[in-house]
Amino acid sequence: MQDLLTIGGKTYRSRLLIGTGKYRDFAQTRAAVEASGAEIVTVAIRRTNIGQNRNEPSLLEALPPSRFTYLPNTAGCYTAADAVRTLRLARELLDGHDLVKLEVLGDPHTLYPNMPETLKATEELVKDGFKVMVYCSDDPIQAQMLEAAGCVAIMPLASLIGSGMGILNPWNLQLIIEKVKLPVIVDAGVGTASDATIAMELGCDGVLMNTAVAAARDPVLMAKAMKKGVEAGREAFLAGRMPKKLYSASPSSPTEGKIAPKAA
């Protein structure tokens, strides 16, 4: 049986979602995305450089929207109004594409989400027909509010955006996974492959990352490692780990027929 991820009514084989920022060039972006096996790639929406580099290749040429599901984000938005405006431009830009990543930030120092504005923007976008995947704090109550508001995926941070600090509060992530029915995707904070594995072992439905791959010494190799990390974590979660047994060791080899005497 195939283990598919369903978001907003569409299914995906890969549970790794990848950002396209901070790479050396589009060739490296493309190579890293290919190595990661990701089907969903995030992009930012920015003003064109009027009068500059008109013949420069574009991201849409490097990563054709026919092959990848674009997830336009609202990076850099600090109000619900700016985020909604940005995503309406994204929808126009991508010919009516309605799957989006909402992030409304609280301050430039932490990039921590502003949850009241995030909730407001979610409500407005849902009303306007968008399928909203929401970057949010790892608060299970806020997550349930977002679910009630009609978003299609809950995306709590594991630690601050771009920090590479890993999964700082697995307990809160677990609470969110228990409390919401929507896909839960860890977004932000993953630093290396084992972080992605831990997120998946907890029962997350996917992991979204950018800097962990782009800022690795070898981004393409790290993308490959992340693919394996996510797959290993997912399979371990599905397999159901053995219980932890403190003070109660159990040998894997037979206890009978040993030549050594019994321990005291």
Partner: peptide, 25 residues
């Protein structure tokens, strides 16, 4: 909308934003 580009006349004082998709996380 793209379909309305050709028949949307600009007026003095209009504020325009022209955006593209770029790499981002």
């Amino acid at each position: 909308p793209r379909s309305a580009h050709a028949n949307t006349l600009l007026a003095d004082g209009d504020a325009l934003e022209v955006v593209v998709a770029v790499g981002g996380g």
